[in-house]
Design a protein around this nucleic acid. Structure first.
Lengths: 111, 111
DNA sequence: ATCATTGCAAAGGATTTGCATGGCG
DNA sequence: CGCCATGCAAATCCTTTGCAATGAT
């Protein structure tokens, strides 16, 4: 079992404390493995506003998240954001390498 | 001078350390004032991935950010993301209350 | 022997909490 | 007095760093 295995098995993005728990290794080790995976573009880093980072496989299936403000439930959603990216390319000289796009609100159960 | 004044004067989102410096008050005070402003929907909280939160006025002029991975330069950009929001409303039962959308890459100078 | 990986403890940085104080109705 | 804003120190949480020990090549 390694970090990638845990991410593969998890339905939602995973933070360091969970990786420590599942892998039963030191947190420093986890941080270092995560760092390497990020550098190699195998995983992506997400922030949901609660002060800790979460990680997810970077797979062919690029998607975004709906995060419930009430219960924390997480839903994946696939979007066509290329329109927006192209719009930016047209308007500016900025070369986009990555983006973060998350939605916060109320899930079906909580609204 | 209060938090809102500092945010009004600043061209880019501001973190707590800057507020402490400008307002010359205790950081705890700043955190508490910020908390209140967030609750009252007067400011918004942003995360650029470096572990600290930044704050910005919530004004009529809703926009997003281009953050340079090299030099940290920040550019504002106005986008039409309603298309995407509507798309989500059609596809899911999630009620979106807010979203975060930031772009990372290389600015004109760095690319 | 060398180089990468791990563990552990300590340090750092951002944020929160507890408690005492001061201002003001 | 009672209430709210402030300050200060300590605590907490997440993350990073230094260093020694282990493992693999």
């Amino acid at each position: 079992m390694n970090v990638l295995d845990v991410l593969r098995k998890s339905k939602s993005p995973v933070d360091v404390s969970i990786l420590v728990e599942k892998l039963k290794v030191n947190k420093t080790t986890v941080y270092r493995q995560v760092e390497k995976l990020l550098k190699n573009n195998l995983i992506i880093e997400l922030e949901f506003g609660d002060g800790k980072k979460r990680y997810e496989l970077k797979d062919e299936n690029h998607h975004h998240h709906l995060i419930c403000n009430r219960c924390g439930r997480l839903e994946d959603i696939k979007l066509n954001e290329e329109i927006i990216i192209k719009d930016i390319s047209n308007k500016t000289n900025f070369k986009i390498e990555s983006h973060s796009l998350e939605f916060f609100g109320l899930c079906v159960n909580c609204k």
